[in-house]
Write a protein that binds this DNA or RNA. Structure first.
Lengths: 211, 211, 211, 211
DNA sequence: CATGAATGAGCGTTCATTCAT
DNA sequence: AATGAATGAACGCTCATTCAT
């Protein structure tokens, strides 16, 4: 029999329990941080939301600050994970896939991103350490993508920097209302259609083609 | 005796003084709210910034909350004032003027807008009462503007809602880094050029024209 | 069957185990109480020091308070045990032996005594119940000892109370730095020499003898 | 008239008020620290003792810690002030004056010294930074004093280090019960007599002079 | 018997606001 | 009108102790 690893399993079970609890706390905290802001959210609020004693939380996090830090770090990792996909995309798949993927990734865990943005909007350290630092490679990749298409004669010769920023702009415009919670998250179908429209408009612009 | 108007004048002078002080307090507060967030900014911080006693502030505002409310209201009025200009623009002036004007208005008092955004991002009441309520007419106007151009055959038949959102998207992309303070405010020249590039890209898209 | 005494033996073995554990816990606690103070020492500190779960400690003591009480009681018993030796000493052995013995007893388990002093210095109940109550007989014995020597013409006629206090004074001076941990505990040889010097000075004073 | 310095006086008045309040708080705190220990004394205890709101205390001290620090520093200064007197004494005045002076200084503000001792007994930093550091010069002076008397043939040739420690020993023995509060502070007369007895015993020892 | 998890009570501290001058 | 002083309410956090396994 394979009962050679009970100690491992035992440990894993315990650790899984802890991880599960941390998740529960983080989810509730993110929800509250998103709705009221980090500062205005009290430990009591969080404890109430997860139905624990306040002091119990301190068994899973060293304090309110660490809950936020963990949320930020987790989202930073999420952003990093985008890069892996992006790097291979431009050649193999269409522009639409790229936009669709970015949207999907961002909107998954929308509440968490709302928290990240809220903090980054106020705190320089968060902005630089967690947002700019991790998004920069994405922007660079986009810029390379545009440059390559210009070289290939697919795009007309525009400033790649401005171009990259514009893609991000559409992005933000599409995604912000959902993150903020004024629009419901789109279904995969809706998201795909939005991505297609977006790419079409970016590609062709508003202007009518002259016959 | 010369007591014809002195009471009036006295009162006016006094009121002007009060208004001046309220301005000073609001400016300092907005600066601090922008940098540290409303919650994290203490009355003591503000009093120190304007070099007054803490309790003196209560002679000009009923409390910290009212300082914020006043900032929000003021910026809501600013947004309303955009509408007046916008309403006449589409016919007389170019698209570029429109974008340029919007940018200019938004970036004037950037700190105030940063505060508005920070609060609206967190507080539903602020979002609805001060932001959505006042920006909605602007969006509608943009949508009308696009519809009109489609009817006129200038734009190709796209969804006007999506179009309006895209204009706002560029807008946000151009303006957000300045509001956030990661980019310096552009000079009028730079702003104009940015507006031109933006409009050009919106109009023509990225794609190369086929011969 | 051989179950005549097993229950007894079993119980005894068990009790010994418990006593051993209590000792371990008390030693670690005394160390920590001495270094950081009773209040500042947490159950967690103790548990960590003895490598047990925190709640396990409650199987051996009813709480932190009882650990302290046990330490205090134990040292009170130690002081009582001094009396047995003292009572017979003055006649049979020299003054030096007396001082030496006291020093040895006090410095054995120095950490425990440091804790006792710390508590007695702060808590009236501890001072009266554990320190004064048990030291009083020692002081009385010393006083009797001095009175007897005065009667015998060995000491000159001084106030026996003041004399007893002075012996204790030398005592404290010699012992306090070791208890406090600013001096290492003396070797038996060093202790003997210190006792001799002390007694010599007490006997003869500082003054040079006039020819 | 001498009303040229009102601003100075005004400032002084305000500062005096603050100093007075700090004194009140320190006195009450020292009392409580002495009775229950620093750790066991809560801000609420202190606030209650001085009949203030808890938060009011923070207008005078940055926290509980600073109250203790101030007490410690103050007593350290007191000890330093002893040195000034000591330096001139040995030649001009008698040994008795020296002992009497030391006693008086130590017993003035006995509660404060009790707190200092309590902390020094537990906290190494306090012991070294506030006690040893400031008492060392006193001990050195005593040692010099003894050496000088030995050279002059007044004292017999004993170890000056041991001698100094013995003087301190008597000192501690005389003073400790008062600091601890088990004996009332002596009147100046009583103190003088105690000093005289002490010096006599130190000088001549217990032993009867042999005819 | 041993223990990690849970928790209520309470701590030191902050701060928007009010009060007395 | 201006202000330093005062404060209640609430916050983040700790810890001795209990509980469930």
């Amino acid at each position: 029999m394979n009962n050679q690893s009970p100690p491992l399993k035992e440990k894993t079970r315990h650790e899984r329990r802890i991880q599960r609890q941390r998740r529960v706390i983080m989810d509730a905290s993110a929800m509250l941080f998103a709705q009221k802001g980090y500062r205005a959210t009290t430990i009591r609020d969080i404890a109430q939301a997860v139905d624990m004693g306040e002091s119990t939380l301190y068994g899973y996090f060293t304090g309110k600050q660490e809950v936020l830090q963990t949320i930020l770090s987790q989202q930073a990792e999420m952003v990093d994970s985008l890069l892996v996909h992006l790097a291979e995309l431009p050649d193999r798949k269409s522009f639409v896939d790229l936009v669709d993927l970015l949207m999907e990734k961002i909107l998954t865990g929308a509440v968490y991103n709302r928290v990240v943005i809220a903090e980054a909007w106020i705190d320089d350290e968060v902005l630089r350490g967690f947002v700019l630092a991790h998004w920069r490679p994405i922007l660079d990749t986009l810029q390379d993508f545009i440059s390559a298409r210009i070289s290939a004669g697919i795009f007309r010769p525009i400033d790649p920097g401005l171009g990259a920023r514009m893609i991000v702009a559409f992005f933000i415009a599409a995604v912000l209302p959902v993150l903020r919670g004024v629009e419901p998250p789109p279904s995969p179908r809706q998201r795909r259609r939005l991505a297609e429209s977006t790419v079409e408009l970016i590609s062709g612009g508003f202007n009518a083609r002259m016959g």
